[in-house]
C-alpha cells in the first residue's frame, strides 16, 4: 500500500475544508471499502481524514415526524434501532441482508451509500476500466457480465451499485444531508445523489470536492408491508444478483426499488403505478429500457419473479 499521512478531523467544517484543499485526500469512515481499495492501489490517497470523531452518529426524530440518521451511525446500530425496526422495517432488513456482523459493526450510513462497485474488472488493475482510469475502456463490455447492470447502462460502463441499504433508502425516499467546503449545507434527494455512468463513470455521486455527508433523513413512516428480498448465489454473505425493496399498502399500491440491476438503486414512478396490476406489468415498466447482455439477460426474469414473490408475501 502507498504511504499516506493521517489526521483525525475535529469538526465537519474542518474535515470539509481539509479535503477540499487536497485533491489526493479521502475521508475514512468505517474503512471497510476504502481500505480494501487502498490495499489493491485502486484508491491511492496521500492523506486520510478520519471522520469517526465528528459526532454525527446519532439517530433522532425530525420535526416533520421522520428520522435523521447520522452519517457515522454503524450499520449494526441502525438495523437494531427500535424506531427503524418498528417504522422502517425495510431498512433494517436490507442492512441485515448485507455483508457480515464484523463488517456491519464498522460500516457507516454514509460509507455504505458511497461504497464502490464490485465489478471484477474494476478490481483488476491489469484490465482497462473507465471507472478506475478515465478513458481507458471498459473490460466488462464484451467480457464476463453475469453480475452487471441491465438498465441505465452506457457504452462506457455497465457496473452496478452493490449496496443493499441504498435500495431501501431509495424506496423510502431518503434525503442526504451534506456540508460543503465553504460551510454551506444542502439536502439531496437520494434519487439525485447517485449518478448513472454516462460517459463519466468515474464520477458516481453529485458530491463536490470536500463535501461531507452528515446525515440521511427519512420522511414520516408510511406503514404498509415492508419487504426486502435479495437473490444471490449463496444464502449469506454475497452481493445481490437482484434485490427488491418494497413497501406495499393493503390496497396494492406502494413504493418499490430494485438493486443489482443498475448503477444506482432503480425506481421508476410509472412502474410503481402498475403495482396494483401485479409483478409482470410493474417489472415490464421498470425494465422498459433494459439493454441486457447474453450473460445477464436472466436478470429480467429474475426481477419479475422476485417482485412476484414480494407481492405474494405482502398479500399473505
Amino acid at each position: 500500500m502507498r504511504a499516506f499521512t493521517y489526521e483525525r478531523a475535529s469538526s465537519v467544517e474542518a474535515a470539509a475544508k481539509a479535503a477540499a484543499s487536497n485533491s489526493q485526500a479521502r475521508f475514512i469512515a468505517g474503512g471497510t471499502n476504502l481500505l480494501d481499495l487502498m490495499k489493491l492501489e485502486i484508491e491511492t490517497p496521500t492523506h486520510l481524514i478520519d471522520i469517526n470523531g465528528l459526532g454525527v452518529d446519532k439517530i433522532e426524530g425530525t420535526q416533520e415526524g421522520g428520522v435523521r440518521i447520522g452519517a457515522l451511525v454503524r450499520n449494526t446500530d441502525l438495523a437494531a434501532h427500535e424506531t427503524i425496526r418498528r417504522d422502517y422495517g425495510l431498512l433494517s432488513r436490507a442492512l441485515l441482508a448485507g455483508a457480515s456482523g464484523q463488517l456491519r459493526n464498522k460500516a457507516t450510513t454514509a460509507g455504505n451509500l458511497l461504497q464502490r462497485t464490485r465489478c471484477p474488472y474494476f478490481y483488476d488493475t491489469n484490465q482497462p476500466c473507465n471507472k478506475r482510469q478515465q478513458g481507458s475502456g471498459c473490460s466488462a463490455i464484451g467480457g464476463f457480465t453475469r453480475q452487471h447492470a441491465v438498465v441505465g447502462t452506457s457504452d462506457a460502463c455497465i457496473a452496478t451499485h452493490p449496496s443493499d441499504m441504498a435500495v431501501a433508502m431509495r424506496a423510502l425516499d431518503a434525503v442526504v444531508e451534506t456540508v460543503k467546503a465553504d460551510g454551506s449545507r444542502r439536502s439531496v434527494p437520494i434519487e439525485d445523489f447517485h449518478r448513472l455512468p454516462g460517459d463519466t463513470p468515474h464520477i458516481e455521486t453529485v458530491l463536490e470536492a470536500g463535501e461531507v455527508v452528515t446525515a440521511v433523513t427519512l420522511p414520516p413512516p408510511v406503514g404498509g408491508k415492508q419487504i426486502y428480498r435479495k437473490v444471490r448465489d449463496r444464502a449469506s454473505y454475497a452481493f445481490a444478483l437482484v434485490s427488491v425493496g418494497a413497501v406495499i399498502q393493503s390496497d396494492g399500491t406502494g413504493q418499490v426499488a430494485v438493486g443489482g440491476i443498475a448503477h444506482k438503486p432503480w425506481r421508476i414512478a410509472t412502474a410503481e403505478a402498475e403495482l396494483p396490476r401485479g409483478a409482470k406489468s410493474t417489472a415490464d415498466a421498470l425494465l422498459a429500457d433494459a439493454r441486457p447482455t447474453e450473460q445477464n439477460r436472466f436478470k429480467i426474469d429474475l426481477v419479475r419473479r422476485t417482485l412476484g414473490a414480494v407481492l405474494t408475501e405482502a398479500r399473505g
Binding site: I28, G31, D36, K39, L48, S100, Q102, L103, N105, K106
Partner: peptide
C-alpha cells in the same frame, strides 16, 4: 487480507471486527 474470511477477527471496544480492515 481482503476483509472476506474472518480469520483475523478480534474484539475491539466490545465489538467483533476484522483486524485486516483497520489501520
Amino acid at each position: 487480507e481482503t476483509t472476506h474470511c474472518g480469520a483475523c477477527t478480534i474484539d475491539m471496544d466490545g465489538r467483533s471486527i476484522k483486524s485486516c480492515t483497520v489501520f
